[in-house]
Design a protein around this nucleic acid. Structure first.
Lengths: 155, 155
DNA sequence: TAATTATATTTGCTTTTGTCAAGTAATATA
DNA sequence: TATATTACTTGACAAAAGCAAATATAATTA
């Protein structure tokens, strides 16, 4: 590892990596215990992005997820056959297919939302209200620093 | 989702979930772009835990990772055949096998460490030193709130 | 102490998840 | 109008992960 700014930077990286290890583990465990077995994490991400992006395309989804294109194509195919998504060839560019959530898809997305919220709820339930606020503020701050957005932007 | 303490709690969960989505994505991307293709994330976690725990066992590793036991057994087998780990039957309890890093394993672990540090370095490099400190403090605070430890404990 | 139960690990088999490369169709560009 | 690029799909395959049954040892209980 290149030591750019001396010891301070090393310490900072250590602290972030320590967080990552713990967080990756707990996300892994969450998935195992909470996340409903109907959809994989990747499938859930796709469902979420279709909700987020509204009428969208495989390419737009993959701008975010950067999956193998064939793989994404199959995921979409599966979600269509499960009646969560619809796909319609674009009128203006026939290479593109517009993807949307069906009514069932919206409902399933909401279920996933609830499962996810419940899992977070469980994790933070042992904290006091002020601790929970501190926690959320810390997450917001990280978001802002790393991704340049805060709690008031985006969706 | 059960609305336990009213609106504030919902907001907090939303903010945490938003962080999670971004973070899961960026960890996914990190893995794709940075992480050396020799070992999967799970294998890396095993290697790290053997380093962390010193002489250990499959069961001890799995207390943390909670993988399928057969799967973990095979991962250990692979790492042994790649000369990263050794396994020796315990003298005191012959059901158990003591697992350790080899010299090669230690070296590989260090390489993984460096890759991981480099990837963090890249991510934080656009931040000023004070922003980096703020970032690390936020991570520390979350660690403390969620896992009850801070930057001065553990390893 | 013999029989039963529990723990630690392994193995065979299967499913799920993800990758690679080649393909089709439509559009954009030179 | 030929060529390149973009959007997406498909077949073949490999890697990751899970399930259930098996083995060996240890702990418990009758």
């Amino acid at each position: 590892m290149k030591q750019v700014n001396g010891m301070k930077e090393i310490e900072i990286i250590k602290r972030i990596r320590k967080f990552n290890r713990s967080y990756v583990r707990s996300i892994g465990l969450l998935e195992k215990t909470f996340l409903n077995t109907d959809y994989s994490l990747t499938e859930s991400q796709v469902i979420f992005l279709v909700k987020e992006q509204g009428k969208t395309t495989a390419t737009a989804i993959n701008k975010v997820l950067k999956l193998d294109e064939g793989y994404l194509s199959r995921i979409i195919k599966k979600l269509i056959s499960n009646s969560l998504l619809t796909k319609e060839q674009s009128k203006t560019d026939k290479r593109c297919y517009e993807i949307m959530l069906t009514t069932i898809g919206i409902r399933e997305q909401q279920k996933l939302d609830e499962l996810s919220s419940d899992s977070i709820q469980t994790i933070i339930s042992h904290l006091s209200e002020s601790e929970q606020l501190e926690l959320a503020s810390s997450f917001d701050k990280i978001m802002k620093l790393l991704y340049g957005r805060n709690e008031n932007e985006g969706q």
